[in-house]
Simulated scan of single mutants.
Amino acid sequence: MSHRLTGRSVLMGITIIAGALSPGIAGAAPAAPAPTNLTLTVHQGADTRTAVLHCDPAGGDHPRATAACRELASIGGRLQELSSRRPERLCTMDYRPVTAQARGTWQGRPIKQSVSANNRCLLRARTGPVFDF
């Protein structure tokens, strides 16, 4: 009996073996990012405001959750990059110090960071929608 292999039968055999060795690779979806759960707090004098922010998907009680998650994603969750931004809008120079704090996790990584500014306008200018609540 002759065992003659044609190019087509060899190709079909390789395809079957490759499929058996790597099940699910072709149809595997990328892993979803670890959850983001942050408690954001803004202190100014006796006034304290708090918002909860979830990302992937955006949610919580933050009024601009989608925009805040997008902003955080653009800096890889490194909040210190927000405080180093130069404001793009004009703010008065009145001195009413404000401190904002984020605690929780960004894509599973623990975060506990603070940002300070001379007034609420400067805070919003530097941090965008993240602390705008």
Rank of each mutant, 00 (worst) to 15 (best):
D94F: 09
R4W: 09
R78Q: 15
H54L: 11
T41R: 13
T36Q: 12
A51G: 10
I16W: 11
D132T: 04
P110T: 02
D94I: 11
L11M: 14
C69M: 11
T15G: 15
G108F: 09
M93W: 14
S83Y: 06
T48E: 12
M1S: 09
G19Y: 04
Q101S: 11
T39S: 03
S74H: 05
T6W: 11
A65K: 07
Q101K: 13
L53Y: 09
R4N: 11
M93I: 11
R4L: 12
I17N: 01
R96C: 05
N118Q: 14
Q101D: 01
W106T: 02
A102M: 02
S9V: 12
F133P: 02
T50A: 01
A73N: 14
V98N: 03
I17S: 02
Q113H: 15
Q113T: 14
R124D: 08
S83W: 03
A65R: 06
T92W: 05
T66H: 01
P110Q: 01
L40V: 12
L123G: 00
T92P: 02
S83P: 05
A18P: 02
S114I: 06
T66A: 13
N37D: 14
C91N: 08
C91W: 07
Y95F: 13
A67E: 11
P129M: 05
Q107D: 06
T50P: 06
P57F: 08
R103T: 11
R78M: 13
I75W: 05
R96A: 12
M12N: 10
R109L: 03
I111A: 11
G13P: 02
A117C: 12
R85P: 06
I75E: 02
R49D: 00
T66F: 04
I16Q: 06
E71N: 09
V10S: 08
Y95M: 04
A100V: 10
G60R: 02
A26R: 12
S114P: 03
A51I: 09
S84A: 15
F133Q: 02
T36D: 13
K112G: 01
P33V: 05
L11P: 05
R4C: 00
I75H: 02
L53V: 12
R70Y: 08
V42A: 07
T66Q: 10
Y95K: 06
H54D: 13
N37G: 10
Q44L: 06
C69S: 09
N118V: 10
G76L: 05
P87L: 07
A28F: 00
V10N: 00
A100Q: 10
V98L: 04
R96D: 09
L123E: 06
R109E: 07
H54T: 11
G60E: 07
R126W: 01
L38A: 00
R109K: 14
A28L: 01
L53C: 08
G108A: 10
R49Y: 00
D61Y: 05
G77N: 03
A31P: 05
A26D: 04
V115Y: 11
H62W: 05
